[in-house]
Nucleic acid binder design. Structure first.
Lengths: 110, 110
DNA sequence: TCTTAATATCGCAATATTACGATAAATAAT
DNA sequence: ATTATTTATCGTAATATTGCGATATTAAGA
């Protein structure tokens, strides 16, 4: 085997897992943080910011895009990448609600 | 190659990536949600809740534990697993702060 | 002590990820 | 048209993940 059994889980569980997986690599966390830091989102220089070769960065960007975490617009010869706020909001709500529920049930036995 | 170059990124970036990676599989999301749902955290029946074999579940639990997302206490022959609230709070703050910063800079050009 | 029950670990096969050099594709500038 | 610039894709090697059967471990109960 080796392939994830996605079909056995709910859509929401798979959605969260997909977004989380995309953030499961420090380079991709670094990319998101860089996009957040930079004012404009004309971001042709992501490659220079990261300690990785250009094809590797391109691949990471592709995965972030597939997971819906970033958007990319062609801007001449460069490409304008920026954060998809919806995905981040989704994570915020998910973990926000989870902490609320954790605080409600204080019966932590561990 | 094939190994993540963790040493090139900040501690915080690696921390977030590690926790996110642990949640990057629907089975592990399902485990967390189940632990949240169940009142007490005597959770010997996680295996019955998931469509996966016992060794596979055990492995997923191990990864969640290594990432600091759950805690496990030995309770006789069973094991009491429960969510580590700190890790969830960490994610909540991280994405919460991120949405704040996203709303501050409305200059979304995409 | 012997059995039962609950988890963990080992070993392995299938698949996925990570990284990068080489190269392609697309547009801008000369 | 030719060249430079930027990003994507291909191919491939190294490593990691996923899943499970078989087996070990650990402690409770008869």
């Amino acid at each position: 085997m080796g392939a994830t059994k996605t079909e056995h889980f709910t859509v929401q569980q798979n959605t969260i897992a997909t977004i989380a997986k995309a953030l499961g690599h420090p380079a991709r966390v670094a990319i998101i943080e860089y996009l957040l830091q930079v004012d404009t989102c004309i971001c042709g220089d992501i490659v220079n910011e990261l300690p990785l070769a250009q094809p590797t960065v391109s691949q990471h960007l592709k995965e972030l895009k597939n997971a819906g975490l970033i958007k990319g617009n062609i801007e001449g010869t460069a490409i304008c990448y920026c954060i998809n706020e919806t995905a981040i909001e989704q994570l915020k709500s998910y973990f926000g609600e989870m902490t609320v529920r954790l605080n409600e049930k204080k019966s932590s036995c561990c």
